[in-house]
Design a protein around this nucleic acid. Structure first.
Length: 334
DNA sequence: TGAATTTGACCACT
DNA sequence: AGTGGTCAAATTCA
């Protein structure tokens, strides 16, 4: 845990340093850019430290699919007999996405998506060696939150958990990630109202977010097994980014220009691994994906607590990924 | 003792 | 009829 926190601190520092370097690149005259050498040294130190520490992370693989999942059951809480209205399934045209979460630990609940879930059922699934667990938001009754998820071990690899999300959180579980980063972002937009007290509050929140993030695992990776369906993996993006921007390496600037750095975790723009189509991603982004009634999103999760945000990046579909985009190119993120 | 989990039964869908 | 999703009583846990 402490190691994960350290890892996150290092990553935070690395990201900020990267941004600083880019800023200097853009705004400093070439004669004053000797400082960039120092920044690059700092980055090198970060990389070394991270490479030493980064060995216990979770590995998350998304396995997007277009199979349909049913709509969320409509619940009539006023009905004395909920069974009359509750059990519906397999009818919707919803999109299905599932995460494949690999845990570095043998625990049954290897992943934590930041929400409070309560298990309400478990079923043996035909053709599957492991039962499927059914979870719903803890605040289902208190706040009417309809988010549910299904967790099942993979047949192929029991260390991999396939997680399906349905519905959307409407509860007041505050998002460590979203709330924090959005708040920071908002604050940066309103520097005129900035106060030391407010800054302290933000720092506290940021610490909380980082802790939550570390509980989530710092080495999370997402694998898109079907690039043709990448729009289903990332059905929406909160900002219009031309693929050309992505290709020419200005994606980070694009993020900044569209003011989403406050909304997207730094993990999202972390370096990709050497394996093609892998890239780091924060669960908060995925959790914020919207669909109509069925919202199948993926996140590394345990069935335990740790709030995540209810980021609304409903316009994510404006983003077009270049199929040939080299996600395995670390320079993309720098 | 309240909250969370387990588990058998019920129900909808195919 | 088979299968998957949910309910809710019983049980376990903190």
């Amino acid at each position: 845990m402490e190691q994960e926190a350290l890892l996150n601190e290092l990553k935070e520092g690395r990201e900020v340093t990267n941004l600083l370097m880019k800023h200097l690149h853009l705004h400093l005259p070439s004669s004053h850019q000797t400082g960039l050498v120092l920044i690059e040294k700092i980055l090198g130190s970060y990389e070394n430290a991270l490479s030493i520490l980064n060995c216990n992370g979770l590995v998350v693989e998304t396995k997007p699919s277009l199979s349909t999942m049913e709509s969320l059951p409509s619940i009539d809480h006023s009905s004395p007999d909920k069974r009359d209205v509750f059990k519906k399934r397999k009818t919707s045209s919803g999109r299905t996405e599932q995460l494949r979460v690999r845990s570095g630990t043998p625990l049954d609940n290897p992943v934590d998506d930041g929400f409070c879930w309560r298990k309400y059922g478990q079923k043996a699934i035909l053709g599957s060696n492991f039962p499927r667990g059914y979870y719903r938001c803890t605040h289902r009754h208190s706040q009417g939150c309809l988010a549910i998820k299904q967790v099942q071990k993979s047949n192929d690899d029991p260390t991999i958990f396939e997680v399906k999300y349905k519905g959307r959180h409407t509860c007041n579980q505050t998002s460590h990630f979203a709330a924090t980063y959005v708040s920071v972002s908002t604050e940066s937009e309103n520097e005129g109202n900035y106060s030391p007290k407010r800054q302290h509050q933000l720092e506290v929140k940021q610490k909380q977010a980082q802790q939550a993030f570390s509980s989530f695992g710092s080495g999370i990776k997402v694998k898109t097994e079907d690039l043709d369906n990448r729009e289903d993996i990332f059905p929406s993006f909160p900002f219009p980014v031309e693929s050309e921007q992505v290709k020419n390496g200005s994606f980070v600037e694009a993020l900044m220009e569209n003011d989403i750095m406050g909304n997207l975790s730094p993990a999202f723009i972390s370096p990709a691994t050497s394996e093609s189509n892998y890239f780091s991603m924060s669960p908060c982004h995925m959790c914020s994906f919207e669909s109509d009634l069925t919202d199948i999103i993926s996140a590394p999760t345990s069935v335990t607590n740790s709030p995540i945000g209810d980021l609304d990046i409903s316009s994510l579909d404006k983003l077009e990924f270049d199929p040939s985009f080299p996600f395995d190119n670390p320079e993309f993120f720098y």
